[in-house]
Amino acid sequence: MIHIGGISFDLDFFLKYLFNPPEMIWHGILMTIAIAIIAQVAGVVLGFGVAIARLSKFAMLRGLAGLYSWAWRGTPVLVQLLIVYTGVAAAGVYRYPEIALGPLLISGPLQAALITLSLNEAAYMGEIFRGAIQTIDRGQIDAARAIGMRPSTAMRWVILPQAMRTVIPPLGNEFTLMIKGTSLLSVIGVRELFGSVQNINSATFKTFELFLIAAIWYLAMTTVLSIVQRFVEARLRRHELPAAATVKPNRSLLSAR
């Protein structure tokens, strides 16, 4: 225990819980990762749908998608979360009974969390996809049509692969925000990382140590993610490299200096 003036910091506790986390923290980390991945994947899929709707030739569809995007991006996630969980249950619309999925039991709060984060993310991904699709040169669509591609075939093999190059950097940012955003779920009682840490805190009162540990774990997750993102982006940019440069980087890496 370190004491400096009125400040106390339990270094032993801190180090022990940081490097040898109890099962509850491990569980919290896994929950955080699982929730973030599921909500992000759902957000990407739904967001693509929102983008297609926003680019539709039907004004009605465009309008609805615009409205969706406007509402979900213009309100705080915390408020959305409490409407979807507490509000919806209080109104008697849906009371979130537990759902058994094989050996997994999906609790009410977890259901509400996944729904809210997915729908929220769809609004943001919708904007990102729309922007990316709109930057594709008109001539690409002409060329795809000219070899007999239907709109869906052209989307899959010509437009989307090119749009993904523009989508990946903001998608990485979105996923980072998603990982951090899951910490809000503790308010409705989801046992993700921060919720677990708060639980331990209520038994040990090592608040500063525990919250620091949570912050360090979040930082570790987002750091790993940013490294993965850099690899993916480099891979997507392969075809932009001039012929000579595809050889060069390897050489400088291998050269002993």
């Binding site: 040169d137 001539g139 690409q140 002409d142 060329a143 795809a144 049509r145 000219a146 070899i147 007999g148 591609m149 239907r150 709109p151 075939t153 010509v158 692969p161 090119q162 190059r165 075809h239 932009e240």
Partner: peptide
């Protein structure tokens, strides 16, 4: 329909002023 038009276009080759090659493909 777009699908019917697409079927016709299979038999009509076109070359554009600005090539319009797909940049993500070799």
């Amino acid at each position: 329909s777009e699908a019917a038009v697409a079927r016709h276009r299979r038999h009509i080759g076109m070359v554009f002023q600005r090539f319009n090659l797909f940049p993500h493909l070799t």
